[in-house]
Design a binder for these strands. Structure first.
Lengths: 123, 123
DNA sequence: GTACGCTAAATGCACGTGCATTGAATGCGC
DNA sequence: GCGCATTCAATGCACGTGCATTTAGCGTAC
Protein backbone atom coordinates (compact mmCIF):
# COMPACT_ATOMS: atom_id res chain seq x y z
CA UNK A 1 0.00 0.00 0.00
CA UNK A 2 1.60 3.30 -1.05
CA UNK A 3 2.25 5.69 1.76
CA UNK A 4 -0.25 8.36 0.78
CA UNK A 5 -3.02 5.82 0.45
CA UNK A 6 -2.36 4.63 3.99
CA UNK A 7 -2.62 8.19 5.26
CA UNK A 8 -5.87 8.66 3.40
CA UNK A 9 -7.16 5.47 4.98
CA UNK A 10 -6.19 6.73 8.42
CA UNK A 11 -7.88 10.06 7.86
CA UNK A 12 -11.02 8.39 6.62
CA UNK A 13 -10.93 6.10 9.64
CA UNK A 14 -10.62 9.11 11.94
CA UNK A 15 -13.42 10.90 10.22
CA UNK A 16 -15.81 7.99 10.46
CA UNK A 17 -14.90 7.25 14.05
CA UNK A 18 -15.29 10.86 15.10
CA UNK A 19 -18.67 11.17 13.42
CA UNK A 20 -20.02 7.92 14.76
CA UNK A 21 -18.69 8.14 18.29
CA UNK A 22 -19.94 11.68 18.62
CA UNK A 23 -23.37 10.69 17.32
CA UNK A 24 -23.54 7.69 19.66
CA UNK A 25 -22.27 9.59 22.65
CA UNK A 26 -24.80 12.39 22.31
CA UNK A 27 -27.78 10.21 21.38
CA UNK A 28 -27.17 7.76 24.24
CA UNK A 29 -26.53 10.55 26.72
CA UNK A 30 -29.54 12.57 25.74
CA UNK A 31 -32.06 9.78 25.37
CA UNK A 32 -30.87 7.23 27.89
CA UNK A 33 -28.45 8.91 30.29
CA UNK A 34 -25.70 6.58 29.20
CA UNK A 35 -22.20 7.27 27.99
CA UNK A 36 -20.87 5.31 25.05
CA UNK A 37 -18.45 3.31 27.20
CA UNK A 38 -21.19 2.49 29.66
CA UNK A 39 -23.45 1.22 26.90
CA UNK A 40 -20.62 -0.79 25.44
CA UNK A 41 -20.20 -2.61 28.74
CA UNK A 42 -23.90 -3.36 28.99
CA UNK A 43 -23.96 -4.46 25.36
CA UNK A 44 -21.18 -6.97 25.95
CA UNK A 45 -22.74 -8.29 29.11
CA UNK A 46 -26.07 -8.89 27.40
CA UNK A 47 -24.33 -11.03 24.82
CA UNK A 48 -22.84 -13.26 27.46
CA UNK A 49 -24.67 -16.44 28.31
CA UNK A 50 -24.63 -15.66 32.01
CA UNK A 51 -24.80 -11.85 31.68
CA UNK A 52 -21.63 -11.91 33.69
CA UNK A 53 -18.01 -11.27 32.71
CA UNK A 54 -14.73 -10.75 34.47
CA UNK A 55 -13.14 -7.32 34.31
CA UNK A 56 -10.33 -8.84 32.38
CA UNK A 57 -12.66 -10.27 29.74
CA UNK A 58 -14.41 -6.93 29.39
CA UNK A 59 -11.04 -5.30 29.00
CA UNK A 60 -10.26 -7.44 26.01
CA UNK A 61 -13.56 -6.61 24.35
CA UNK A 62 -13.67 -2.89 25.03
CA UNK A 63 -10.99 -0.50 23.94
CA UNK A 64 -10.44 1.22 27.23
CA UNK A 65 -7.54 1.25 29.63
CA UNK A 66 -7.78 -0.92 32.70
CA UNK A 67 -8.34 2.11 34.92
CA UNK A 68 -10.97 3.64 32.65
CA UNK A 69 -12.86 0.36 32.58
CA UNK A 70 -12.70 0.11 36.36
CA UNK A 71 -14.27 3.55 36.68
CA UNK A 72 -16.85 2.90 33.99
CA UNK A 73 -18.01 -0.20 35.85
CA UNK A 74 -18.03 1.85 39.05
CA UNK A 75 -20.40 4.36 37.46
CA UNK A 76 -22.67 1.59 36.22
CA UNK A 77 -22.64 0.01 39.65
CA UNK A 78 -23.53 3.31 41.31
CA UNK A 79 -26.57 3.51 39.02
CA UNK A 80 -27.50 -0.06 39.85
CA UNK A 81 -27.10 -1.30 36.29
CA UNK A 82 -24.42 -3.84 37.11
CA UNK A 83 -23.07 -5.38 40.27
CA UNK A 84 -19.62 -6.54 41.17
CA UNK A 85 -19.02 -9.90 42.75
CA UNK A 86 -15.82 -11.43 43.99
CA UNK A 87 -14.51 -14.32 42.02
CA UNK A 88 -14.64 -17.49 44.10
CA UNK A 89 -11.73 -19.24 42.45
CA UNK A 90 -9.43 -16.23 42.25
CA UNK A 91 -10.19 -13.59 44.82
CA UNK A 92 -8.17 -10.99 42.94
CA UNK A 93 -10.68 -11.16 40.12
CA UNK A 94 -14.04 -9.41 39.91
CA UNK A 95 -17.14 -10.52 38.12
CA UNK A 96 -19.37 -7.88 36.63
CA UNK A 97 -22.96 -9.00 36.43
CA UNK A 98 -25.81 -7.28 34.63
CA UNK A 99 -28.74 -6.51 36.92
CA UNK A 100 -32.37 -6.51 35.89
CA UNK A 101 -32.51 -2.70 35.74
CA UNK A 102 -29.32 -2.86 33.69
CA UNK A 103 -30.82 -5.28 31.26
CA UNK A 104 -33.90 -3.12 30.98
CA UNK A 105 -31.90 0.05 30.39
CA UNK A 106 -29.91 -1.71 27.73
CA UNK A 107 -33.08 -2.92 26.05
CA UNK A 108 -34.29 0.67 25.90
CA UNK A 109 -31.04 2.05 24.57
CA UNK A 110 -30.19 -0.65 22.09
CA UNK A 111 -32.56 0.50 19.32
CA UNK A 112 -31.11 4.01 19.56
CA UNK A 113 -27.60 2.61 19.36
CA UNK A 114 -28.35 0.46 16.35
CA UNK A 115 -30.26 3.18 14.56
CA UNK A 116 -27.53 5.79 15.02
CA UNK A 117 -24.93 3.35 13.71
CA UNK A 118 -26.98 2.51 10.66
CA UNK A 119 -27.85 6.12 9.91
CA UNK A 120 -24.33 7.43 10.40
CA UNK A 121 -22.54 4.69 8.50
CA UNK A 122 -24.93 5.14 5.65
CA UNK A 123 -24.65 8.95 5.62
CA UNK B 1 -27.19 -3.49 5.58
CA UNK B 2 -28.55 -5.84 8.26
CA UNK B 3 -28.36 -4.50 11.77
CA UNK B 4 -25.80 -6.94 13.12
CA UNK B 5 -23.45 -6.28 10.24
CA UNK B 6 -23.56 -2.56 11.00
CA UNK B 7 -22.65 -3.25 14.61
CA UNK B 8 -19.79 -5.47 13.50
CA UNK B 9 -18.59 -2.66 11.26
CA UNK B 10 -18.74 -0.21 14.14
CA UNK B 11 -16.83 -2.52 16.43
CA UNK B 12 -14.19 -3.12 13.79
CA UNK B 13 -13.95 0.63 13.24
CA UNK B 14 -13.50 1.16 16.98
CA UNK B 15 -10.88 -1.52 17.18
CA UNK B 16 -8.84 -0.13 14.32
CA UNK B 17 -9.11 3.42 15.54
CA UNK B 18 -8.12 2.49 19.09
CA UNK B 19 -5.11 0.51 17.91
CA UNK B 20 -3.91 3.11 15.47
CA UNK B 21 -4.50 6.21 17.57
CA UNK B 22 -2.81 4.59 20.55
CA UNK B 23 0.19 3.57 18.43
CA UNK B 24 0.44 7.04 16.91
CA UNK B 25 0.00 8.82 20.20
CA UNK B 26 2.71 6.86 21.96
CA UNK B 27 5.19 6.83 19.08
CA UNK B 28 4.87 10.55 18.42
CA UNK B 29 5.02 11.38 22.11
CA UNK B 30 7.99 9.21 22.82
CA UNK B 31 10.08 9.98 19.78
CA UNK B 32 9.11 13.55 18.97
CA UNK B 33 7.39 15.05 22.01
CA UNK B 34 4.25 15.58 20.00
CA UNK B 35 0.67 14.61 20.69
CA UNK B 36 -1.40 13.18 17.89
CA UNK B 37 -3.57 16.27 17.64
CA UNK B 38 -0.51 18.50 17.56
CA UNK B 39 1.01 16.49 14.75
CA UNK B 40 -2.25 16.54 12.86
CA UNK B 41 -2.24 20.33 12.93
CA UNK B 42 1.34 20.51 11.69
CA UNK B 43 0.59 17.92 9.02
CA UNK B 44 -2.29 19.95 7.68
CA UNK B 45 -0.33 23.17 7.73
CA UNK B 46 2.52 21.61 5.76
CA UNK B 47 0.10 20.64 3.04
CA UNK B 48 -1.10 24.19 2.64
CA UNK B 49 0.47 26.29 -0.06
CA UNK B 50 1.25 29.10 2.36
CA UNK B 51 1.77 26.93 5.45
CA UNK B 52 -0.97 29.02 6.96
CA UNK B 53 -4.60 28.27 7.74
CA UNK B 54 -7.41 29.89 9.64
CA UNK B 55 -8.59 28.24 12.83
CA UNK B 56 -11.89 27.63 11.15
CA UNK B 57 -10.26 25.81 8.25
CA UNK B 58 -8.25 23.67 10.62
CA UNK B 59 -11.42 22.91 12.48
CA UNK B 60 -12.99 21.48 9.36
CA UNK B 61 -9.99 19.26 8.68
CA UNK B 62 -9.36 17.99 12.19
CA UNK B 63 -11.92 16.19 14.25
CA UNK B 64 -11.62 18.23 17.38
CA UNK B 65 -13.98 20.59 19.12
CA UNK B 66 -13.40 24.27 18.64
CA UNK B 67 -12.08 24.64 22.18
CA UNK B 68 -9.78 21.64 21.93
CA UNK B 69 -8.34 22.99 18.70
CA UNK B 70 -7.79 26.38 20.29
CA UNK B 71 -5.80 24.79 23.09
CA UNK B 72 -3.88 22.49 20.77
CA UNK B 73 -2.74 25.50 18.77
CA UNK B 74 -1.90 27.24 22.03
CA UNK B 75 0.40 24.36 22.99
CA UNK B 76 2.06 24.42 19.59
CA UNK B 77 2.52 28.17 19.86
CA UNK B 78 4.05 27.84 23.31
CA UNK B 79 6.61 25.45 21.82
CA UNK B 80 7.28 27.83 18.95
CA UNK B 81 6.07 25.42 16.29
CA UNK B 82 3.33 27.68 14.98
CA UNK B 83 2.45 31.31 15.42
CA UNK B 84 -0.87 33.03 15.51
CA UNK B 85 -1.53 36.11 13.46
CA UNK B 86 -4.58 38.29 13.35
CA UNK B 87 -6.56 38.16 10.17
CA UNK B 88 -6.42 41.50 8.39
CA UNK B 89 -9.77 41.25 6.67
CA UNK B 90 -11.72 39.84 9.62
CA UNK B 91 -10.19 40.72 12.94
CA UNK B 92 -12.20 38.07 14.74
CA UNK B 93 -10.31 35.41 12.78
CA UNK B 94 -6.87 34.01 13.51
CA UNK B 95 -4.32 32.68 11.10
CA UNK B 96 -2.15 29.81 12.25
CA UNK B 97 1.21 29.79 10.50
CA UNK B 98 3.84 27.09 10.59
CA UNK B 99 7.21 28.35 11.79
CA UNK B 100 10.56 27.05 10.60
CA UNK B 101 11.09 25.03 13.79
CA UNK B 102 7.57 23.71 13.30
CA UNK B 103 8.31 22.64 9.77
CA UNK B 104 11.50 20.97 10.92
CA UNK B 105 9.79 19.13 13.76
CA UNK B 106 7.12 17.94 11.37
CA UNK B 107 9.78 16.73 8.92
CA UNK B 108 11.33 14.68 11.72
CA UNK B 109 8.04 13.23 12.92
CA UNK B 110 6.46 12.52 9.58
CA UNK B 111 8.36 9.30 8.81
CA UNK B 112 7.39 7.93 12.23
CA UNK B 113 3.77 8.84 11.61
CA UNK B 114 3.69 7.22 8.19
CA UNK B 115 5.50 4.13 9.32
CA UNK B 116 3.22 3.55 12.30
CA UNK B 117 0.18 3.92 10.09
CA UNK B 118 1.49 1.46 7.54
CA UNK B 119 2.59 -1.05 10.13
CA UNK B 120 -0.59 -0.87 12.18
CA UNK B 121 -3.02 -0.96 9.26
CA UNK B 122 -1.18 -3.91 7.83
CA UNK B 123 -1.03 -5.79 11.18
C1' DG C 1 6.21 -22.39 56.48
C1' DT C 2 8.47 -17.92 54.19
C1' DA C 3 9.95 -15.15 50.51
C1' DC C 4 9.67 -13.71 45.99
C1' DG C 5 7.69 -12.48 41.61
C1' DC C 6 3.46 -12.00 39.08
C1' DT C 7 -1.35 -10.77 38.20
C1' DA C 8 -5.99 -8.33 39.09
C1' DA C 9 -8.26 -4.39 40.12
C1' DA C 10 -8.58 0.18 42.42
C1' DT C 11 -6.86 4.89 43.19
C1' DG C 12 -4.03 9.52 43.08
C1' DC C 13 -2.87 12.56 39.86
C1' DA C 14 -2.19 15.19 35.64
C1' DC C 15 -3.89 16.16 31.29
C1' DG C 16 -6.79 16.72 27.15
C1' DT C 17 -11.48 17.27 25.81
C1' DG C 18 -16.29 19.07 25.36
C1' DC C 19 -19.88 22.17 26.86
C1' DA C 20 -21.27 26.51 27.97
C1' DT C 21 -20.07 31.10 28.36
C1' DT C 22 -17.52 35.28 27.47
C1' DG C 23 -15.40 39.02 24.79
C1' DA C 24 -14.49 40.97 20.55
C1' DA C 25 -15.59 42.07 15.72
C1' DT C 26 -18.62 41.86 11.79
C1' DG C 27 -22.69 42.78 8.95
C1' DC C 28 -27.41 43.92 8.49
C1' DG C 29 -31.60 46.76 9.25
C1' DC C 30 -33.13 51.00 10.32
C1' DG D 1 -25.01 57.15 12.83
C1' DC D 2 -27.18 53.21 16.34
C1' DG D 3 -28.69 48.73 17.76
C1' DC D 4 -28.80 43.73 17.34
C1' DA D 5 -28.15 39.15 15.93
C1' DT D 6 -24.29 36.45 14.34
C1' DT D 7 -19.65 34.66 14.08
C1' DC D 8 -14.85 33.67 15.72
C1' DA D 9 -11.81 32.40 19.13
C1' DA D 10 -10.58 32.03 24.08
C1' DT D 11 -11.61 30.54 28.80
C1' DG D 12 -13.90 28.47 33.26
C1' DC D 13 -15.32 24.33 34.57
C1' DA D 14 -16.49 19.47 34.97
C1' DC D 15 -15.55 15.06 33.42
C1' DG D 16 -13.43 10.88 31.42
C1' DT D 17 -9.05 8.93 30.35
C1' DG D 18 -4.25 7.13 30.80
C1' DC D 19 -0.11 6.48 33.50
C1' DA D 20 1.96 5.16 37.57
C1' DT D 21 1.36 3.35 41.92
C1' DT D 22 -0.91 0.79 45.50
C1' DT D 23 -3.31 -3.06 47.62
C1' DA D 24 -4.61 -7.69 47.66
C1' DG D 25 -4.23 -12.37 46.26
C1' DC D 26 -2.04 -16.04 43.65
C1' DG D 27 1.76 -19.41 42.51
C1' DT D 28 6.34 -21.15 42.77
C1' DA D 29 10.87 -22.08 44.86
C1' DC D 30 13.22 -22.97 48.66
Amino acid sequence: MPEEVAVKTWRELSRQFAALSWALESALKEQHELGMSEFEVLDRLVEDEHRCLRMQELGELIHLSQSALSRTVARLEKDGLVERALCATDRRGVYVRLTDPGQQRHAEARPTHRRVINDTLRG
